[in-house]
């Protein structure tokens, strides 16, 4: 299979990786780069477990061809808790009981991260819209929404 070198910025570091450019960014992150925090739930953009930020916008890594990352900034869940301390969004998820099985959590946190970057004080409806592409089967979303609202308050301080 023809391979291509794709260069992009991953969690603040430049990476160059030879890969199948048509394969998904998800498989590049998980299978080639060993970043297993981004989860795979459906492979069709229908569950949001693989949500990462592409130039600051939430996308389904399973629907992004690896070649599309060329020259862009890719941010994954691994970037949020560097140095061992939790990001305020993650703290809020812990405090509000927003994590049950935890499988949707990384994608959910990344959607929240994208939201709070663009809207530091979202209302409950904005929060719901922002996570509407992330399925969670455990929580009924209530505590996730509470956590994102609490994270917004934390980030303001």
């Amino acid at each position: 299979m023809d391979k291509q070198v794709v260069s992009f910025n991953l969690n603040g570091e430049a990476v160059r990786v030879r890969c199948d450019p048509f394969s998904s960014l998800l498989s590049l992150l998980r299978d080639r780069l060993g970043l297993l925090g981004t989860k795979a739930g459906c492979g069709r953009g229908e569950c949001g477990a693989c949500t990462v930020l592409l130039d600051g916008l939430a996308v389904n890594a399973c629907l992004v061809p690896a070649g599309k990352a060329e020259g862009l900034n890719v941010e994954t869940i691994e970037n949020l808790s560097r140095g061992g301390s939790l990001h305020p969004i993650q703290e809020a998820f812990v405090e509000k009981g927003a994590v049950q099985c935890g499988f949707c959590t990384p994608g959910m946190v990344m959607s929240a991260h994208a939201l709070l970057k663009s809207d530091p004080a979202p209302g409950r409806e904005e929060i719901r819209k922002a996570i509407s592409g992330n399925l969670c089967r455990c929580s009924g979303y209530v505590q996730i929404e509470e956590a994102i609202a609490a994270a917004a308050d934390k980030l303001k301080d």
């Binding site: 953009g45 939430a58 996308v59 389904n60």
Partner: peptide
């Protein structure tokens, strides 16, 4: 349409 993730791309 779709979801925020799909609408972003």
């Amino acid at each position: 349409l779709g979801s925020p993730q799909i609408r972003n791309i």
